[in-house]
Design a protein around this nucleic acid. Structure first.
Lengths: 203, 203
DNA sequence: CTTTATTATGGCACTTAATGTCTATTGTCA
DNA sequence: TGACAATAGACATTAAGTGCCATAATAAAG
C-alpha cells in the first residue's frame, strides 16, 4: 500500500470534489436554488462533512481569495522601492491585470456565479477591503505617520479600489474580452492626474 | 369615528414598533444573537407577521436607505447646472455631509449595529452601488455617450465612492465627532487634483 | 503483525431563518 | 348590521448551520 493516499491527500481530493461539484450545480441551477445536501450527494459525502470543509455555502466560492490578497501584498513588497507609492501600486496592479487576463476563463466562471446572487455579491465586496488595506499600507509606509497622512492614505486607497472595482466589473460584464491592462493604465493615469478635468479632445 | 386609526396608520405603528424593539435588542445583545422570535415578542406580534413587514432580519436595519439614495439623486439634479460634473457631485456630497453631521447620533447608532455583524456590513455595501450609479449618471449626462466616456464615468464614480466610503468609515470609527464636511472637501480636492502627488509640505 | 492512539466521517437531534397554507380576526364600506 | 377585503396568527415545512456521539480509516507504537 503506497503512501500516496495519505490523509492530507485524501482531504485535498474531497475538497476539490466538493468545489467542482458545487460549481457545476451553481452554474446549472443557480446558487440559491442549490442545497448543501445536493452538493454533498454529488460529492459523495454527508452534509455534515460538508461543514467540516467549508464553514458555509458561500465559502465554497471564495476559497482562493485569501491567496490572491497575499499574492498582491507580495507584489506590493516587490515593487516597494519604485519612485513613488503610486508607481508601486500601479506596477502591482499591472502585474495582477496580466494574470487576470491569462486566467480570464476561470475568473469569468466564478464571477458569473457571484453576480447571480445578492448574497455572494455582498460577500465578495468584503474581501475587497483587504486589498484596500494593502494599498493604504503602501502610502502609510511612504510618509510619516500623522493622522492627516493616514487619512490621506485611506482616501487614496479607497479611490483606487473603487476605480479598480468599477473597472473589473465592466471587464466581467463584457465577458473578459477587453484589454484589462490597457483599461487599468488609463484608469490609474486618470486618478494620478485628477478626475476633475474635461475628457473632451483626448481619447 | 375618526379616520386617524385607519389601517395604514396601524401598519405604520406596528412597523415602527418592530424597528424600535429590534434596534434595542440588537444594541443590547448583538445582531446575530437576537432571534426574530425575540423581536416579535418584544413588538407583540407573531414571527409570521414580522415577515409581512420585513423580508428578512437584516432589512430591519436598512429601511431608510432607499430614501437616502433618492434624496441624493434629487440633490444631484438640483446642482446639475453647476460648472462641471465634479462641482455638481461635490456640492451634493457637501449637502449630504452637513445632513449626516446634523443627525450624527442616529447614524452612529445604526453604524454601531452594522459594524458588529459581517452580514450587515456586506449588505450595506450593496447599497453603495446605487450611490455610485447616481454619480456615474452625472458624468454620463455631461458628455457624449461613447463607450470610452461611459467607462470614464464608471471609473470616476467608483473612485469617488471608494474615497467617500473610506472617509465615512473613519468618521464612524471616531464616533462621528470629527468634521465630516471638512474631511470631505479635502478628499474631493485630492481627487480633483490627482492622487499621485506628494503631500509633504502642505497640510 | 497486532494493538493503540488519532482523526475523519456519518447519523441524529436541535436551533433559527424563511416561506406556504389555512383559519380567525378586524377594520371598511354599503 | 352584514358582507367584503385586508390583516394577523397558528401550524407545517424547507434549508442553513451546530453540537454530540458512535464508528470507520489511518498513523504510530509495541
Amino acid at each position: 500500500m503506497p503512501n500516496s493516499n495519505t490523509r492530507e491527500n485524501k482531504k485535498a481530493q474531497v475538497r476539490e470534489r466538493i468545489i467542482a461539484q458545487a460549481l457545476k450545480l451553481f452554474e446549472r441551477q443557480g446558487y440559491e436554488r442549490t442545497t448543501i445536501n445536493e452538493i454533498a450527494v454529488a460529492a459523495k459525502i454527508s452534509t455534515r462533512t460538508f461543514f467540516r470543509y467549508f464553514p458555509s455555502k458561500d465559502m465554497v466560492i471564495f476559497p482562493t481569495h485569501d491567496a490572491y490578497i497575499a499574492h498582491f501584498r507580495h507584489l506590493l513588497k516587490h515593487y516597494a522601492n519604485d519612485s513613488s507609492p503610486m508607481e508601486t501600486v500601479s506596477n502591482a496592479l499591472r502585474h495582477m491585470a496580466k494574470e487576470y487576463m491569462a486566467a480570464a476563463d476561470e475568473h469569468l466562471r466564478y464571477q458569473r456565479i457571484i453576480g447571480s446572487s445578492d448574497t455572494l455579491l455582498a460577500r465578495s465586496v468584503a474581501f475587497d477591503w483587504q486589498w484596500e488595506e494593502a494599498i493604504a499600507d503602501v502610502w502609510k509606509r511612504a510618509y510619516p505617520r500623522t493622522p492627516a497622512h493616514d487619512r490621506r492614505a485611506a482616501y487614496v486607497a479607497g479611490a483606487i479600489m473603487g476605480a479598480v472595482n468599477a473597472l473589473t466589473s465592466m471587464w466581467y460584464a463584457g465577458g473578459c474580452r477587453q484589454n484589462l491592462l490597457k483599461w487599468g493604465e488609463t484608469t490609474m493615469e486618470l486618478l494620478a492626474k485628477g478626475i476633475g478635468g474635461d475628457p473632451s479632445g483626448k481619447k
